[in-house]
Amino acid sequence: MITVEHLYHSYSNDEVYAVKDVSFDIPKGEVFGFLGPSGAGKSTTQGVLTGLLRLQKGHVTVAGYDVKRLERKMFNQIGMSFEQSNVYSKMTALENLKFYSKLFDVPTRSPEELLELVGLSGKGNVRAGEFSKGMKHRLTFARSMINNPELWFLDEPTTGLDPAIASIIKDIIREENQKGVTVFLTTHNMYIADELCDRVAFIVDGDIRLIDSPKSLKLQYGENLVKVEYGEDSKLQSQTFSTVDEADKKKLGELIETKNIRTMHTKEATLEEIFINVTGRGLV
């Protein structure tokens, strides 16, 4: 669905690159996470892929279209949810969605249905300017689905949302992905990336350091340990066991049989820990 080969981009049109020699492929139906701290080059890469930024150097195809010779009809297949909500504040939620639906040449979704999907039913006739930040964000998110995109760019889709709404948004992303929609998720939130992405790319200083699936990364970088907390003599005790060592496995079994187990966690690495391990940088 997306092919990027040796992409470079400089805002100052010189050798100072915001992204340099970036290459990756995203097959149809994948949820691809583009992870990195602020200023890493995430938005620049996404800007080139969506045509907001001119392709300077490299080869990029999006939904079968060469971005160098951008054709407007490509956007019939693309949806984009921005990090900063950008809807017409003087228009109602319904007017916003209806207006955008008329800009596409493909069948579009019902604005009412989309509002309901993101929890804004009953707010259709309220001007977007009167919405809270979170509501505007949901409206921006709903708008990105108006044309039934085959390729969906999501820039920090859960930023600023309360956990319940964020959970709804994640469910929608999963549902759309199950229908075959390819998702390009830009975020610095490792939890959402871990939950949703088939593969993630770590980008730092305009450079992709690693591309792999979260599961594979955890196996690769995590430790094969289990931490057990249990009650003994009215106190909470804890022990860590290897899940590979036979002696430890035996001890763990005995502990489970004889003690009052309170918690038991595998010591797999989080994506954030892996990111720091790989790039030497934090995510903020």
């Binding site: 907001l52 490509m74 921005f82 900063q84 950008n86 800009l103």
Partner: peptide, 14 residues
């Protein structure tokens, strides 16, 4: 200020 030009730019309408 509202950033709507960017949203318009990612539609088939020039």
């Amino acid at each position: 200020k509202e950033g709507v030009i960017k949203a318009y730019a990612i539609t088939p309408s020039p």
